[in-house]
Write a protein that binds this DNA or RNA. Structure first.
Lengths: 195, 195
DNA sequence: GTCTATAATGTGATAGAC
DNA sequence: GTCTATCACATTATAGAC
C-alpha cells in the first residue's frame, strides 16, 4: 500500500474500500469480482492491485474499517453513559442494530462474510470479530443478574437475535431502536404469567 | 434426474446429496467444487451431470432434503405433545438446535447458504426456508402472551439466537438441549429484579 | 451409469508502457 | 497512479465412447 495511514477521506483508496464493502455486503466475497469493484470507481481491474496486493487483503481492510466504525458507534451511542445498566445494554444493542441494518455496508460485511470462507485471512478476520465482540460483551456483562442465569448465554442470545435480524429486517417495518428495545424488554420482563 | 421419487436410501444419488451437503455446510456454495463432491463418492466430475443438471439444482435438492428432515424432526421431538405450551416451544427449539448444531449437514446448509448467493434458484431456496419457518412459527405462536408483547419479534428473537449459535457452538460445551432450555427460560423469567 | 476428453467461460493476478 | 494486454488457472458443463 502506498501510504501507511491517515489518508484523507474520499481518497481513491477509500472509494475502493466503499465499493468493495458494498458488493461484499450484498452478495458475499466469492460472488464479488475485482472487475465489479474497479468498475464502480472508474478504474480498470489491474489498477486495483496498485492499492491492494490481493482480493483477500481488500476484504481484510474492509473488515478493519468495519470494526473501527462499529466500535466508535458503540462508544458514542446515546444513552451509553446512563446510570441504569439496562439502559446501557439497550444503547449498545441499538447502536449495533443501527450499524448492521441501516447504514454501513462495512458492518454488514462483518456479519455476512464468514471468516472460514476466506482461508488466507481467516485468522485475522476472526480476531477482528473477537475484538468487537469483547467490547460489546463488556457492556452487557456489567449487568447484575440472578445467580442462576448464564450470563454468557444471555449475551450470545442477544447478539444472535440482533445479527439474524439482517435476514428479516425491512426498512418500512420497525426501526432498529424499536427492535433493540423490544429484545431487551423480552429479557427483562417475564413472558410467562405462571413463573 | 433418472428416477422421479422414492429411490431407496444410500443410492448413488443419495451419496451425492450427502457429499454435497457436507461441503456446502462446511465451506459454502461457491467454495465447493463439483470435483470435490464427485471425488467423495468415487465419481468423476462429468458423471455428476447424469444425476443433476447443474450445481445449483444440486444445492436446491440439498435444501429440499434439509427442510423435509427438519420438519420431521420437529414433529417427532420429545415433548412436542406436552400440555404445557412453553414445553412445546422448548421442544421445538431444541429440535431445531439439535439439527443445526450436531447432526445434519443438510440443516446446516439451510442456515449458512444464503439464497441471494445463488441467484438461479434464490426464489426456490427462499420458499423452502419460509415453509420451514412457518411450521416453526405455528408452535411458538400458540403461546398466550401479555398483550403488550410483539409475538413476531419474540419468535424472530428465538430463531435468530438459535441460528446464530452455529457461529459459537462447540461440541464440548453446553448441549443443544441445555442451550434451548436456557434461551426459553431467559424469555419466560424476568432478568431485571426491579421490573 | 460412468468415464474420457475437452469446450467455454470467468477469474485473480502480473508486466511493463505511459 | 492508471492503463493495456495478457497470463495462468480453476471452474461448470458438454459430447460421445464404453
Amino acid at each position: 500500500m502506498p501510504q501507511a495511514k491517515q489518508q484523507k477521506r474520499n481518497s481513491r483508496l477509500d472509494q475502493l474500500l466503499d465499493a468493495a464493502a458494498s458488493h461484499f455486503a450484498a452478495k458475499g466475497y466469492r460472488e464479488t469480482t475485482i472487475r465489479e469493484i474497479s468498475g464502480d470507481v472508474g478504474m480498470l481491474p489491474g489498477s486495483v492491485y496498485y492499492h491492494f496486493p490481493s482480493k483477500h487483503e481488500l476484504l481484510l481492510a474492509v473488515y478493519e474499517q468495519g470494526v473501527g466504525r462499529m466500535l466508535q458507534r458503540i462508544e458514542k451511542a446515546p444513552g451509553i453513559d446512563s446510570n441504569d445498566p439496562w439502559k446501557r445494554v439497550e444503547a449498545t444493542l441499538v447502536a449495533h442494530l443501527d450499524a448492521i441494518l441501516d447504514q454501513s455496508d462495512y458492518a454488514r460485511v462483518l456479519i455476512s462474510v464468514r471468516p472460514d470462507q476466506v482461508p488466507e485471512v481467516a485468522d485475522d478476520l476472526k480476531a477482528l470479530r473477537d475484538r468487537y465482540e469483547a467490547r460489546f460483551a463488556s457492556h452487557i456483562d456489567a449487568l447484575t443478574l440472578p445467580p442462576d442465569v448464564d450470563q454468557r448465554l444471555m449475551r450470545l442470545m442477544l447478539i444472535g437475535a440482533a445479527n439474524w435480524s439482517q435476514i428479516w429486517y425491512r426498512p418500512n417495518g420497525q426501526s432498529p431502536a424499536e427492535i433493540g428495545k423490544a429484545f431487551v424488554d423480552l429479557l427483562r420482563k417475564p413472558l410467562d404469567p405462571s413463573s
